[in-house]
């Protein structure tokens, strides 16, 4: 048995742990414009990132977008997930494929679609100006709103499918029993469906929050040059600035913040569930 598990285990370690370990090591090095990276063991990259108001702001934007997108995805995803979970079985697989369909398209291509829709010469502005509703193009693209819309569209399928899997496990008769006892639809939702779906809400929100925190293509393509989130900032340091140590430090800060918030958030929600 061990002989079978060992190579696979090593491979997993190779694939998951090795790049992280390498990255951790790099984050402690020192950057030099001429030699790129000088071996060192210093926390100055972390210190600089934490103190720099620019990166504080980037992290703030990232958190804001991630939280906003998670809440939006939850609000939009719950009704859709409920509808999907309660659908007659012969339509369900078709609907599931429809929900998954957007995931078949990569983020870059999908963002290109949004650009074609939201750009100054995009479909929406063309329609608005064509109909004479607006004189000039509305600035729909290259702002936080476009990024939120774009990211929500990306993460919504994950939220819907996670929630639907849990909602499917809620016996429909529990809802009927609640209605039978005098519960109006909103009360049934609040008192029965939501508490029972809470594990799905936690799982879906955690998944989506992590995806949002690490969003790259969507903020780059829809946010425009002036909108910065953490993942593009990390990429910028690695690829444009060639400053690997600082980029690695930023990456670990992003990871740590995501991890802490995920654990805190799911614990709080989970506690609520046990209390209910």
């Amino acid at each position: 048995m061990a002989a079978l598990v060992l190579p696979a285990g090593l491979l997993v370690v190779m694939l998951l742990v090795a790049p992280m370990a390498l990255l951790a090591r790099i984050s402690l090095n020192r950057f030099s414009p001429t030699e790129l990276m000088v071996e060192a063991t210093t926390a100055e990259n972390y210190w600089r990132a934490v103190q720099d108001p620019y990166y504080q702001q980037v992290l703030g934007t990232t958190l804001g977008v991630a939280l906003g997108c998670t809440v939006l995805a939850l609000a939009l995803g719950f009704p859709a997930a409920y509808w999907l979970a309660r659908m007659e079985s012969r339509w369900k697989s078709l609907a599931t494929i429809l929900v998954l369909f957007p995931l078949l398209v990569g983020n870059v291509v999908r963002s290109a679609g949004w650009m074609a829709l939201l750009g100054n010469e995009g479909a929406i502005n063309a329609a608005l100006m064509g109909a004479g509703i607006t004189g000039g193009p509305l600035p729909l693209l290259y702002n936080g709103g476009a990024v939120v819309v774009g990211i929500v569209a990306v993460v919504l399928p994950y939220m819907i499918l996670t929630l639907a899997a849990v909602i499917e496990g809620i016996p429909r008769q529990a809802e009927e029993a609640a209605a039978n006892l005098g519960g109006r639809p909103m009360t049934v939702f609040r008192r029965v469906v939501l508490p029972l779906a809470l594990p799905g809400v936690v799982a879906g929100s955690v998944l989506v929050f992590i995806l949002c925190m690490n969003a790259y293509a969507t903020p780059v393509l829809l946010g425009g040059p002036q909108f910065k989130m953490m993942a593009p900032a990390v990429y910028d340091q690695f690829v444009r600035g060639n400053n690997w140590p600082f980029g690695a430090a930023l990456a670990f800060i992003l990871l740590a913040v995501t991890l802490v918030l995920t654990v805190v958030g799911s614990t709080l929600l989970g506690r609520r569930y046990r209390a209910a």
Binding site: P171, A174, E176, A177, A178, V192, L196, A276
Partner: peptide, 8 residues
């Protein structure tokens, strides 16, 4: 038939 008690 399944009682449909609220499990939580």
């Amino acid at each position: 038939q399944s009682y449909a008690l609220f499990p939580h």
